[in-house]
Structure formats: structure tokens, C-alpha cells
Simulated assay, not measured.
Amino acid sequence: MAAATPAGPSWADGASDHQVREEIRQLCADDHDYADGTVFNSICSEPFPLAREVFAEHFGANMGDHRIFPSLPRVTTLVTRMLGDLLGAPDAGGVPTSGATEANLLAVLAAVRDARGTGRPRVLLARNAHFSFEKILALLPVEPVWVDLDARFRADTAVFRAALATRPALAVLTSGTSECGAVDDIETLAPYAASVGVPLHVDGASGGFLVPFAREFGHPVSGTGFEIEGVESVSVDPHKYGGAPIPSGYLLVRDPARLEALRSPSHYRGAADHFGLLGTRPGAALLATYAVLRQQGRAGYRAAAREIFRLRSVTLDLLERAGLPVAFAPDLMVVGVSCPDPAAVQREMERRGLIVSVSRRFGFVRLVIQLHQTDAQLASLVDHLAEAVKETSA
């Protein structure tokens, strides 16, 4: 049962530090801790310790004012270079964002502004696209062209290729879909998109820190980044598998000149032009992102990705031993579990204090593998899941 909201004194009178802290404690009493073995639905996790430290030290830094905080454009250059290197283009252009939702919006906005001709520009999307694109379609004057999925919940390659031939203003593929962790066939479709003059954007919010290492570990997924001809932009979320604090997203573009379509001049002499959607925004997040990228390096992220795939293997073995069928062979970090009544299973798991999710569109219990999980916690999860499936199937 959720804790009651404390009444406290009237807002007009204010409150002591002690009272405010106590009210905050009560408000957060039902929150889960990533490390407590109850969270199995989140692509985000606890920031790495150094990120927390740097964020706290610089919480007043404002990305909207580079004259007061000249560190931030310098750090932007460095973070762009590191993320670009991770994704195959150290010379890429980049815009720090609040997350991949904003980065995806900027990618579509750039395509709209670059489009020529009359009518609404068309954007080609597979039906596994993140729901951020539904928000984007409501905000921008574009016409969606939807492509169905194959049996692995990836964009149907043949249908998507045929739709590319109609030359939409932008095509979007996903590396690590939110619901299934699926990786579209970017290596096949991006070069074809380039051949017909269609810029291709990859939503790599979930896969950006995993796919660059997946094939080193024997996982045959498509590449994600600029090493593939035709990939013109990529969104990535360091606050997911990168260990950065929320909010930390990024839009990367192969050709920095493409960012000109996003330039918004300031009204003030000497103030920097904006390329993102937000104005005032926390520079602390960018500094903390730099801190963890610099601390971890490619070697650290390779080790983290290796651990994610190891934990995924542990989960699949536990499910098999428990007689719980998986809904699909996973590409990345999402494991789907088939059962007769997924919604009832989710409710029963929450009654037990465990957070899983259910894909509304595809109808399976969704487990997300993250670094905050341990082998023992995963074993307990599967035990509870097996019991919940049995109870809700009776």
C-alpha cells in the first residue's frame, strides 16, 4: 500500500529543513532501489559512483549559458568525440540532449527542415519504433509510413527496402528496441538507403553501449553506428547502459554540417546558438557523462557489456530449468517470457514486490537485464515468476 502523502504545514508558512527531509522520506518510502533485487523492468540503472559525485559538485551548471560556464562547450566537444568513436566516427557532430526522445525529435526535425517540395515530408518507421516517435508525429508536420515486423520483432527487411525506394525524407531503424531489445537489419538497409538518397537515423538509445561489443562475444546482431554506410545519425542514451545520470542523451551526426538545420540563434550578443530543443538544462549531467566515459573507456564498457550478456545467459538457463518458455530469441538485453495471462502475472509479481513489465502490443512478460542484478537475484526472480505463472494460470 502506498504511503500517505504527508499533510505538513501550509506551503505559505514554509518548513524546517528537518521537516522537509522527513516529508521527502515519506514521499519516497515506496520507491524501489535498483540494487535491492526488485527491479527487472528498467533499461536505466543507478549511475556509476563517479557520475553521482561529479553531478553533485556541478548541479548549478547551466547548458543554456556558455559564457558563465565555458567548460560546457569544451566538454561537449570531448563527449561528442568519445561517443562518436564508440559508434564508428570520432569526427561526428553531436548535440547533448535530455535523452533519446529529444535526440529522435531533433533527427526528424532536421529532416523536415532539409526536405524540399510541397506537402508533409514522409518518415519511414517500423512498428517496433519507440513510442517517442508517436509523440514526435504529433508535434511535427510529417507523414508516417509504417512497416510491419518479422517473426523476431525486427523491421521486415524486404518491405522496408521497398518503402525506401519511394524516397521518404527520413528512415528510422532501431538498435535495441525498448519492448524486445531487437536490432533491425541496419547493415543491409542503411547502404540501400544511401543508394536511393534517403538519410537513415538509428535509434540506439538501448543498444548504443551494447551492440559495439556484441559480436566480439559471439552474438550475431547487426551493427549500429557510422561504420555502416548510410547511417547518417544515431541517438544514444548514456543514462541507460553508460552509467551516466538522468538526464543524459545524445544526437550524433556523421556530417557535422547536418546540425545547421537545427541551429536556433540566441537573441543576445555573445550568447551561443542552440541546437537542441531545451534551453536551460543541467550541465552537471554532461560533466558527469564525461566523467564516466573517461573513467570507463572502451575497455570498461566492453567489460560491462560482457557482464550484461552473461547475466542474460544466466536468466535464459534459469527460465529453461523452470519450464518457462521464452517468447523470442533475444538480440540484446530484453528477455520475453510467454504465459497465458501476462497482465495477471505482472500484478502478482508486484504483489510480491517485484517489478516486471508486460508488452501490450506483443503480449509477453518483459524482463530487462541490467548491471544492478546479481545471479542470486535473478534466481529468486525466476522462482517467483514460475510461481506467479502457475497461480494465475489455475
Rank of each mutant, 00 (worst) to 15 (best):
A3T: 13
P9K: 10
P9V: 09
D13V: 02
D13N: 12
S16L: 04
D17F: 08
R25M: 05
A29V: 13
H32W: 13
Y34E: 12
D36R: 10
G37W: 06
F40K: 08
C44F: 13
P47N: 01
P49L: 05
E53G: 00
V54N: 08
A56S: 15
E57R: 15
G60T: 15
G60L: 15
D65Y: 02
I68N: 12
S71L: 14
S71A: 15
R81G: 09
L83M: 09
D85F: 00
D85R: 15
G88E: 01
G93A: 04
P96L: 00
T101V: 10
E102P: 07
N104G: 05
L105G: 05
L105W: 10
A111T: 11
V112F: 01
R116H: 14
R120I: 08
P121Q: 05
R122T: 08
L125N: 13
R127S: 04
F131V: 07
F133W: 03
K135E: 14
K135T: 15
L139P: 05
P141S: 05
V142Q: 11
W146T: 03
V147L: 05
D148E: 10
D148V: 02
R154W: 04
D156V: 00
A163T: 12
L164F: 13
L170T: 01
L173V: 09
S178F: 13
G181A: 02
A182T: 14
V183P: 02
D184Y: 10
D185W: 06
D185L: 12
D185M: 12
I186V: 11
L189A: 02
A190F: 06
S195Q: 14
S195P: 10
V196F: 11
P199M: 09
L200Q: 04
H201F: 03
A205I: 04
S206G: 12
G207T: 09
L210Y: 11
A214T: 07
R215D: 06
E216F: 06
T224V: 08
G225S: 03
I228Q: 01
I228L: 05
G230H: 02
S233C: 08
V234I: 09
Y241L: 10
G243I: 00
G243M: 00
L252M: 13
R254Q: 02
D255P: 08
A257V: 14
E260Y: 07
A261C: 07
S264A: 08
P265H: 13
P265V: 07
H267L: 15
Y268C: 13
G270M: 07
G276E: 09
G279N: 15
G283N: 04
A284C: 05
L287R: 10
T289E: 11
V292N: 01
Q295G: 01
Q296H: 11
R298H: 08
A299I: 08
A304L: 06
A305F: 03
I308M: 15
T315V: 07
T315H: 02
D317K: 12
D317T: 14
D317Y: 06
V326D: 00
P330E: 03
L332D: 01
L332Y: 08
M333N: 14
V335P: 00
V337E: 00
S338T: 15
C339Q: 00
C339K: 00
A344S: 11
Q346S: 03
L354Y: 11
I355G: 10
L367S: 02
L367I: 14
A376T: 11
A376F: 04
L378N: 03
S380Q: 12
V382F: 07
D383W: 00
H384C: 11
H384A: 14
L385H: 04
L385C: 10
E387K: 09
K390C: 12
E391H: 14
T392S: 05
A394P: 14
